Structures are given as structure tokens and as C-alpha cells.
Amino acid sequence: MATGAEPRTLEARATIMENPIYIALSRQDALRRQMDVVANNLANMTTPSYKNQRMMFLEYLAKPAATPVEKVSMVQDYGVLRNTAPGPITSTNNPLDVALQGDGYLAVETRDGQKFTRNGHLTLDLDRQIVDVNGLPVLDEQDNPLTVPQNAGAITITADGMVSSSQGQIGRLKVVRFEREQFMKELGGGLYTADEEPRPAPNTKVIQGAVEDSNVQSVVEMTQMIEISRQYANNQKIIDAEHERQRNAITKLSRLS
């Protein structure tokens, strides 16, 4: 019986010896992905309406195979939290630009249906439709593209989203909000989609001739980057020290045998 149990005991001991390295590696892996998020924040520091993101972590309990250890505590990143706080509003003097003051989103038309954006840097396309930075038509409250007639003259956009010209009203911008804003999925290009139905956003104010800037703060992101680098280096020291400890233990055991 002792002969049959001994190999499993040795295997268990070897696995237990490796556990500290596995734990440190799990933290390093999470730190690497956290660094990617911070780098993406910095890259979008000048992107209109971009919202900075943060990694979310939890303790992951795993039971190693062939060991008497019940559970080992690992580090796991399980999602990205988007900071929905508004960015500063900057005047552009472009009459088609709009900034949304509040939790609203503009609706745009894509091949896959309606998507939503807070990037209000708008222009006219060749068909004189108001489009976003991706060239997607901006919709009115009836889900129709807003088209500016020829020789329309100066365009005005009121706080409630009504678009008008010297020839009369063109339409009202479709501005909507979502109850679970954090659950909206980012698609790139400032576009979002959501599983829930959009609701009217009467408390959102439309500001003409301005855009919402990114809410990324460069000093905060650089500080985060430095802190992540330090934590990564400290974890590497732990791994190196643990590897050296195991190497010394194996050397001493080999001499005893």
C-alpha cells in the first residue's frame, strides 16, 4: 500500500511546490491585460466622447489535481468597466457638431440596424444627409435620415435636438438613453449597441457647435501604467525567488539520495 501511495504523494508535493509560481503567473497575466487597457485609454485620449476603461478582477479559487490542497487562490480578470462620466465639452464652431450634455446617445443607421454614439462630430455627405464620423446617417425621431435641402442656408440645432434651416424644420435628432448603460457593447468607431430597448432622453441637452472630448486623464493613466509596471516587476521577483528555492531544494534532495 505504501508503494502505491508514495508516487501520488511525491506528485502532490511537486504540485504544491509549483503553486506559488502559478499564482504569481496568474497575476502577471492579469497585469498584462490591464496594461493593454491603459494603453488603449492613452491612445484614445484625443478621441471625441471616448470613455476610459478599467479592468475588473476577482479571486479565482482552483483545486489543483493530485494534491491534498482544497483550493488555491488565483487572480482572474473578468471584465472591463467603462467610466461613463462625461468628458469636457469643446467648442468647434462647426454648426453641424453637437455635444450631448447628459446620458443620451445619438442614433445612426448601419447595415446591421441602429447603433448609438455620443461622438457628435457630424458632416454632410454627397446626398446632403447628416452623417457621423463613420459616414453613417444620423436618424431623426421617426428613424429617418436627416437630409438638409439645397440652399438651406444656416443650420441651427436647438437644445431639444430640433434641426432647422432658413427653409424650415428638417427634423429632430433621435436622442435616446439606456437603463443599463454599463451593459452596452462597444463596437469601435465610437459606436455602441445594446440588448435593451432605447428610451427617450428628455433630460439630455444638445449643444450646437461643440463636441464632447474624451474623459481620459493622461496623468492618471500614466500613473496607472507606472504602478502596473512595478507590480509586474515585483511578481517577477517572486517567481525568480521561488524558482531559486525549488532549485536549491532539488539539489539538496539529490545529494541525500
Results as ranks from 00 to 15, higher is better:
P68S: 14
P198H: 09
Q28S: 07
Q182D: 05
P137W: 13
R27D: 07
L136T: 02
A2C: 01
G168M: 11
M35W: 10
H243C: 12
A201I: 02
A24N: 07
G161W: 14
D160A: 11
R32I: 05
I170M: 01
E109M: 11
Y22D: 07
A66N: 15
N44L: 07
A85Q: 10
N234S: 12
L139A: 07
L191M: 11
P137V: 03
T9G: 11
V211Y: 12
R13P: 02
I207R: 10
G171F: 10
G87P: 00
L136P: 06
A107T: 13
N151R: 12
S165V: 05
Q28F: 06
L253V: 14
S218V: 11
A152M: 03
R8T: 06
S26T: 01
P95W: 07
K51F: 07
A194F: 04
V75S: 13
A30T: 07
N234I: 07
R33P: 00
T3L: 11
D36G: 09
G168W: 15
I21P: 06
M35I: 02
V163F: 11
Q167W: 04
R8V: 04
E181N: 03
L25H: 08
T15A: 08
P88T: 01
N40C: 08
V133K: 12
G135C: 04
A210Q: 08
L256Y: 11
P200S: 07
L122Y: 15
E181D: 05
A62E: 15
L106Y: 12
N144C: 04
P149A: 01
I207H: 05
V176E: 01
P7K: 00
R199E: 13
A249C: 07
M1P: 13
A194R: 00
M56A: 13
R172V: 00
I226Q: 13
N93W: 03
V163S: 01
T117C: 01
L253M: 08
E6M: 13
L124G: 13
Q76N: 08
A12M: 08
A85V: 03
I250Q: 07
P145K: 03
G79F: 02
T204F: 11
A66L: 15
M225K: 00
F183G: 01
M17Y: 09
G190S: 02
T147V: 09
D195E: 13
E244T: 15
V98H: 06
I170Y: 06
D213G: 13
P202H: 05
Y105V: 00
D112H: 12
Q182N: 10
S229H: 09
T110Q: 00
Y78V: 08
Q34K: 12
D195I: 08
N83C: 02
L126N: 15
F116D: 01
A24I: 05
G102A: 03
I239N: 14
A194C: 04
P198Q: 10
Y105N: 00
V108L: 03
L61M: 09
Q114C: 04
G104L: 05
D132P: 10
G120D: 09
D195C: 03
R33C: 00
T47H: 06
I157R: 12
R8F: 15
D195A: 14
L81H: 12
R54L: 08
A66I: 08
S164G: 01
L31N: 13
N41Y: 15
G79S: 02
T3Q: 10
T15L: 05
Y60D: 14
M184P: 00
P64V: 02
G120I: 06
G171N: 01
H121G: 09
N83K: 01
Q169V: 14
P202V: 02
